[in-house]
Amino acid sequence: MAITQTPDGTKVWALRDTRTQLTIWAKWFIGTALFMYCWQQISAETNWDFFWDAPAIAADIGGRSVPPKWDYMSKLWAPLWDTLNIATLGTALSLVMAVPIAFLAARNTTPNAYILRPLALLIIVSSRSINSLIWALLLVAIIGPGVFAGLIAISLRSIGFCAKLLYEAIEEIDQSQVEAITATGASRWQVMLYGIVPQIMPALAGITVFRWDINIRESTVLGLVGAGGIGLQMQGSLNTLAWPQVSLILLVILLAVLISEWVSAKVRGAII
């Protein structure tokens, strides 16, 4: 904020001084120029023949996809159940690891701010920076294809997400409640049990159902790389150009996601 004074003594107020204003303008200018340049590059690299017939091809595939092949459903129940299990068990497994990591990462609960906290933060960042599909690719290579690889992939990816949200919740607790429990002569673990855990329970429950909801969606694609679940059928159908099966699978995934969102909304509503 800039307050200047005119010669006759009037104070003039402006949101920013001239220098800041010019800097902001220059940044916008550079950003816009960069955007235009990139646009031009992408445009030069695009094969426009493929682009212009895209609507026709989309309409063709769309036409072949309807009606969905309903009786294929009998082969989808088992993989759908696998998908649900990967998401649910993966979320549970990730929580087992995420809760201790969150306590190590939160500034107010970490036992050691110089070694353990950076370590916990490193685990969180590395878990978050790798997509679950890539985790699955790695794990399929390491432990072989199947549901178990998908389960581990989902849980490894979820650790970072759950631990990050949870440690932020731990850092935001009301410290006076912790102080009060400490003042009774409670031990470190009792302070955690009575002073901290009750305060973060709503956050923990919310994070869990939120992540479970995300994991349902993520586990539907894990099969694409051989990590079990409904994605495996998707892969097979795509490879054989069986469009009516693809459309049925997409419908089933849509329905599963809708139901999981409804469930998690209900659970979150019940907690808050």
């Binding site: 409640q177 009060a180 009774t184 409670a186 673990w189 009792q190 009575y194 002073g195 009750p198």
Partner: peptide, 25 residues
């Protein structure tokens, strides 16, 4: 500085934490 999400009884009994072991609490 009560633990807001615990019951009145749990809050009162939390004054006993110094006398009670972890698992009992």
């Amino acid at each position: 500085a009560l633990v807001e999400r615990l019951s009145v009884m749990e809050n009162v009994l939390s004054g006993q934490l110094g006398y009670v072991g972890f698992w009992r609490s």
